[in-house]
């Protein structure tokens, strides 16, 4: 039954623990970005508000992904897989709009 050990290679290393201060900092950043989007939509409703939301929301998502979800510190394979999933979702949207925008 020794071969079971061979499969554990590299799988269970002690995790890389980030300092709590960093998480609090990210949280503050997320709140500030939220405030930015909300105030943009209140004070500049319409194009500017939408533009800010379009720019800021992915930034918030990226912060959550990279730090809270630790993706920045995972193996590149994880990032690649994530990008594949998001990329394919983008393809679904993009190709569908070849229909809706050209009707």
């Amino acid at each position: 039954m020794n071969h079971s050990h061979s499969m554990t290679h590299g799988g269970n290393a002690r995790p890389h623990v980030l300092p709590d201060g960093l998480f609090v900092g990210i949280w503050v950043g997320l709140l500030l970005l939220t405030a930015a989007t909300v105030s943009a939509s209140v004070f500049f409703p319409g194009k500017i508000g939408i533009l800010v939301a379009v720019l800021v929301t992915p930034a918030k998502a990226a912060l959550i992904l990279m730090y809270f979800m630790h993706l920045k510190y995972e193996k590149p394979a994880f990032v690649a897989m994530f990008l594949v999933a998001v990329g394919i979702l983008a393809i679904f949207m993009g190709l569908t709009f070849f229909d809706y925008l050209h009707r």
Binding site: S4, N12, F78, M81
Partner: peptide, 21 residues
């Protein structure tokens, strides 16, 4: 049977992709 944390994490991420979609 072995224990494989990275394997479990892979599975979890794959599950998250399905949620995303």
């Amino acid at each position: 049977v072995h224990r494989d944390d990275e394997g479990s994490k892979t599975g979890m991420w794959l599950f998250l992709f399905t949620e995303l979609l």
